[in-house]
Design a protein around this nucleic acid. Structure first.
Lengths: 145, 145
DNA sequence: TATTGTTATACTCTATAACTATA
DNA sequence: TATAGTTATAGAGTATAACAATA
C-alpha cells in the first residue's frame, strides 16, 4: 500500500482542492516564519489593518477582519499584553475603545511583514516575477467581485 | 461609522488574504450549489477520489484526503446511508473495508461535478477562458512543489 | 431602548485514547 | 505485537447569551 498523500487527478485538479492547498500551505509557512517574530497570522492581520488608518473601535476592527467581537477581545488582550497596541476609551463615546498601534507595534509590524514576504516567496518559489504579479492580479479581480 | 467589510489595502493585497478569500468564497459557492444535490463538499471529494481508481481501504482514503480515520468512519456512514458507497470486508485481510462506488454513487457524482463546475464558474466570472486556464496552471504548479 | 466591551456558556469540528477483531 | 475499524472522550476554535456601562 502506498504511503502517498496524492488524492488522484480527479480531485487534485479541482479548483477547490488547489485553493485549499495553497491556503493551507501558506498558513503553514506563515506560522513557520512568524513564530520567531512572536506574532500570529491573525495578529499580523490586525497590525496591517491598523497601520496607516484612522484609529478604529474594536467592533469596527472585528467586522472588517471577519471575526466576531468576543474573539476580538481576546486577540486585543494578547496584543496589548505584548505592548503592540493600546486601548483608549473614546472621549466622544465612552462605550468605545479606540485601538492604536504603539511604537513597539510598528516595529513588530515591519518585522512581521518581512516574515510574511518570505512565506509568500517560498510558496511561489516556482513562479517568476511576472507570473507572481499575474497571479496576484487574477486573485485581486476574484476578490473584487 | 462605515458598515463595510473592507480591511484596507495593506491587508487586502496580501497573498494570505487573497487566498483565504478565494477559498472561503468557493466553499460558500460549493455549499450553495451542492446542497440541492444532497452531498457535501467533502463527500464530493471522496466520490472524486473513488472514481476511476482501484478500490481503496478506509485508511488509505482517509490518508489521501487528509482526514483522520475516525472522521472517515462518520463520512462513510453518511454516504453508505445515502447509498452512494459500499463497504465490503477485504477477503485477503478481513480487518480492512474495501470502499466502492455504487451505481447511485456514480450518478450522484456526475450531478455533483456539474454543481461544482457551476460554483467554479461563478467564482471566476470575471475571468475569460484564457485567464481561467492560466490561473489553474499557476495553482497546479504551486501545488506540485 | 440600543450599543460597546466583556464574560460565561454552548456548540462544532477534529484529534486522541481505548476497545474489538483480525493479522 | 501490530493494524483496521469503531466508539467514546477531550480539545481547540468559534459563536451565542447574558451582563454592566454608556448612549
Amino acid at each position: 500500500m502506498s504511503n502517498d498523500r496524492d488524492p488522484g487527478p480527479q480531485l487534485s485538479r479541482r479548483l477547490a482542492y488547489l485553493f485549499k492547498h495553497a491556503f493551507i500551505e501558506l498558513e503553514r509557512l506563515h506560522e513557520e516564519h512568524l513564530t520567531p517574530v512572536g506574532v500570529t497570522a491573525r495578529e499580523l492581520g490586525l497590525l496591517l489593518f491598523l497601520d496607516g488608518r484612522e484609529p478604529s473601535s474594536q467592533q469596527d476592527a472585528a467586522r472588517r477582519l471577519g471575526v466576531d467581537r468576543t474573539t476580538m477581545v481576546e486577540l486585543l488582550d494578547a496584543m496589548e499584553h505584548k505592548g503592540l497596541v493600546g486601548r483608549v476609551t473614546d472621549p466622544s463615546d465612552r462605550r468605545r475603545n479606540v485601538i492604536d498601534l504603539t511604537t513597539a507595534g510598528r516595529v513588530k509590524l515591519a518585522e512581521a511583514r518581512h516574515a510574511s514576504d518570505d512565506a509568500e516567496r517560498e510558496l511561489l518559489a516556482e513562479l517568476d516575477d511576472g507570473e507572481d504579479a499575474l497571479l496576484r492580479s487574477l486573485l485581486q479581480r476574484i476578490a473584487a467581485n
